[in-house]
């Protein structure tokens, strides 16, 4: 199987998962972050559900070097906790809390044809470019 077909298929599966989980709805994400008012803990179940599938695989493959397509398994090289990790996470969390969209759902929400998501995507690209040239 070709890597491109796999990427498209995995994107489709991921997108179906996102929409079933409810995380494509910004107001549901805000309800998760709103712990003092009408808290909705559903997002914990999304992350939990994903992790119970992924954690055993990462464990089983810990000694393997190459993937099915023969590529080397790539892991993030950085290990330490530094200023950029913390500060970047604070910025991301702030943006996430402002409207309830993170990168995956912001792309998936193109499917609802709401022009507001395009504004989000354009400004997200600007943020990515700023980081690149910072």
């Amino acid at each position: 199987m070709n890597e491109k077909i796999i990427s498209l298929t995995c994107g489709i599966i991921f997108g179906i998962g996102l929409v079933i989980s409810g995380m494509t709805n910004p107001s549901k994400v805000i309800s998760f972050l709103s712990i003092t008012y009408n808290w909705d803990a559903s997002l914990i179940f999304v992350m939990g559900g994903a992790i119970i599938v992924t954690a055993p695989l990462f464990y089983l493959l810990r000694n393997n070097k190459n993937s099915l397509l023969g590529n080397e398994f790539t892991f993030p090289k950085k290990t330490g906790i530094n200023f950029k990790l913390i500060f970047g996470s604070i910025l991301f969390g702030t943006g996430w809390g402002l409207v309830g969209l993170c990168p995956g759902p912001s792309v998936s929400s193109i499917a609802v044809f709401n022009p507001l998501t395009l504004i989000f995507l354009i400004s997200m690209i600007l943020g990515i470019l700023l980081n690149k040239y910072l």
Binding site: S106, F120, G127
Partner: peptide, 15 residues
């Protein structure tokens, strides 16, 4: 929305 998108893009790449 504009500010949020910008922060999400910058923050996720920084971290």
């Amino acid at each position: 929305i504009f500010i949020a998108g910008f922060l999400v893009g910058l923050g996720t790449r920084m971290s």
